[in-house]
Design a protein around this nucleic acid. Structure first.
Length: 335
DNA sequence: TAGAAGGAGACCT
DNA sequence: AGGTCTCCTTCTA
């Protein structure tokens, strides 16, 4: 527990090595951005170059439930898809002895390449659909609050509206007063540290949400409307999507939630076409922390999370793989 | 020592 | 009532 996360070190994006990377969502190329968050180096994100995988991580924070629709209809488990799209083929024999060294799943090289290609394709689909859903959600919020989508255009009262809405949506403590008389431009120019100074309790979370809005605005400008496809879908097994209008409904552990954690590097998918839905928790403390944020349970730890996971055994949602390993679980019905 | 497993009770919707 | 959290004990690697 509490150890460094080996899964993070294998990722191409250096910022993910930061322990608090989960709450720092940069989406912009540092050469092109104008928001004034100098401490957040960002990889480029263009229509040609899909949204960085780890950005999914932050988009997840916009929802009170996961994104069944995002992986609906895909041939491969979303866990695999998320991993495959990090930009580099994963070579992790030390992380996946079950599969790689014991002859499961990825056998011939052709199969491996086909699998990787499929995973990359799946990730692109997930990314574009997540982005579409984020933009849709923001659009709804804008209409509801009667504010501009671009935070830079917000007046101080718009800022207050947005903060109130965010507090309500994500059950944050009341922090609006800490940001009084700040315009959207002021807010955009503030670093995460400055957010935390004004609101030690959840300044980081608020900063992350603002970054999502800023990023969405930027992506909207960059991506032609037809490029983002929203894929609505019905609920499936334990992975029913619940949007903001359904707040208060149970939040379940689900393959898509784990898939998004994959994007953050806290979980490594070990699945293949023959062993779908298997994932390894690389950093149990980090996953527990993220789950705690997700469930608004600051006291969450891996012991409690694992107890929850074991509850899913009974429901036939999660099980231990045939060859049991520590921190390795398998979704019985991966999306 | 961390993780796995499961019992039991509390809390919330 | 069901889902989840929390605390606990016991066992294992």
């Amino acid at each position: 527990m509490g150890s460094a996360s080996p899964g993070l070190t294998a990722l191409p994006h250096s910022r993910l090595t930061r322990p608090d990377a989960a709450l720092l969502p940069p989406l912009r190329d540092p050469n092109t951005r104008s928001w004034g968050c100098p401490e957040s180096p960002s990889p480029p994100a263009t229509p040609e170059q899909p949204l960085p995988a780890f950005c999914l991580h932050y988009f997840d924070m916009l929802y009170s439930e996961d994104i069944t629709w995002a992986t609906k209809g895909m041939g491969e488990p979303s866990q695999s898809g998320a991993q495959g799209g990090r930009g580099e083929p994963q070579k992790e024999p030390e992380q996946c002895p079950i599969i790689d060294s014991q002859g499961f799943g990825l056998g011939a090289e052709g199969d491996l390449q086909a699998s990787l290609h499929l995973e990359e394709h799946s990730l692109e689909q997930v990314q574009s659909m997540v982005l579409g859903e984020v933009l849709k959600d923001i659009e709804t919020a804008c209409k509801l609050l009667n504010i501009a989508a671009d935070p830079a255009d917000w007046s101080p009262s718009n800022v207050q509206k947005w903060i109130l809405w965010t507090e309500h949506q994500y059950r944050l403590p009341q922090i609006g007063k800490s940001f009084q008389e700040l315009s959207g431009k002021d807010l955009c120019a503030m670093s995460e540290e400055q957010f935390c100074q004004r609101s030690p309790a959840c300044g980081d979370i608020l900063h992350a949400h603002l970054d999502i809005w800023k990023s969405a605005t930027w992506m909207k400008e960059k991506i032609a409307p037809g490029d983002v496809r929203y894929c609505g879908g019905d609920a499936s097994w334990a992975d029913n999507k619940v949007d903001s209008s359904c707040a208060g409904q149970p939040i379940h552990l689900s393959p898509s939630w784990w898939a998004l954690r994959v994007a953050g590097g806290a979980v490594t998918p070990l699945s293949s076409s023959s062993l779908p839905g298997i994932f390894k928790i690389e950093d149990s403390a980090q996953v527990a922390r993220l789950w705690g944020i997700r469930k608004n349970r600051p006291a969450m730890n891996y012991d409690k999370l694992s107890r929850s996971i074991r509850q899913y055994y009974k429901k036939g949602i999660i099980r231990k793989p045939d060859i049991s390993q520590r921190l390795v679980y398998q979704f019985v019905h991966p999306v």
